[in-house]
Amino acid sequence: MSTFNVVQPEIHTAPIGSPAVWDPIMNRSGGRCECTGSCGRSHSRTEFRCDRHHDRGAVRLVVAPLDLALPLEQAVRLPVAELRAWCPDCHRLARRRHREAAAHRKLRQQPPAEGLFDL
């Protein structure tokens, strides 16, 4: 298994978190965002996976859970297999889609309001 080496610009800052978590995820992903459409984009031009790479241009990948519903207290205890490399755009869009879907489910579970149009 080859080690993923990031070419770091002078202004590079170390990732927040443990290299024991960061390094295996970057090695597995090849330094490429692992989003396959959770963000709402099809990524159809790039084999159905986001084509953004760590430290190419202004892109800095983040490591976050695949399950975006997890609270932070649980997410920090996840094994590497349940974490993914995300570009900031895909992560932001996927989280937004998840929040909107959760709000929609919550709204559907509420009982209908009574009163105004009752006959």
Rank of each mutant, 00 (worst) to 15 (best):
C33H: 06
C33W: 02
C33T: 05
C33E: 04
C33N: 04
E34F: 03
E34W: 04
E34G: 01
E34N: 04
C35N: 04
T36M: 09
G37W: 04
G37Q: 09
S38V: 01
S38K: 02
C39K: 02
G40V: 09
R41V: 05
R41F: 11
R41S: 12
H43M: 13
H43N: 13
H43Y: 12
S44N: 10
S44D: 15
R45I: 02
R45G: 14
R45D: 03
R45E: 04
R45S: 05
R45Q: 06
T46F: 15
T46E: 13
T46H: 15
F48K: 15
F48Y: 15
F48E: 14
D51H: 14
R52V: 06
R52P: 04
H53V: 08
H54K: 02
D55C: 08
D55V: 06
R56M: 07
R56E: 15
R56Y: 14
A58N: 12
A58D: 14
V59N: 12
V59E: 08
V59Y: 07
V59W: 09
R60F: 01
R60W: 03
R60C: 05
L61M: 06
L61C: 02
L61I: 05
V62F: 03
A64F: 14
A64T: 00
A64S: 13
A64L: 03
A64P: 05
P65A: 01
P65M: 01
L66T: 07
L66D: 10
L66S: 08
D67V: 10
L68I: 04
L68D: 04
L68M: 07
A69D: 12
L70F: 05
L70D: 06
L70M: 09
L70C: 06
L70A: 08
L70H: 06
L72N: 10
L72A: 13
E73W: 04
E73G: 00
E73D: 11
A75L: 10
A75M: 11
A75F: 13
A75Q: 12
V76W: 00
V76S: 05
V76E: 11
R77E: 15
R77I: 01
L78T: 12
L78N: 11
L78K: 10
L78P: 12
P79A: 11
P79I: 00
P79F: 00
P79W: 00
V80C: 11
V80H: 08
V80G: 06
V80R: 10
V80K: 11
V80T: 15
A81Q: 14
A81V: 12
E82L: 12
E82F: 00
E82K: 14
E82N: 14
L83P: 07
L83M: 15
R84Y: 06
R84T: 02
R84E: 00
A85R: 04
A85P: 07
W86E: 08
W86S: 05
C87N: 03
C87V: 03
P88E: 02
P88Q: 08
P88D: 02
D89L: 10
D89W: 08
D89P: 02
D89C: 03
D89Q: 11
D89Y: 10
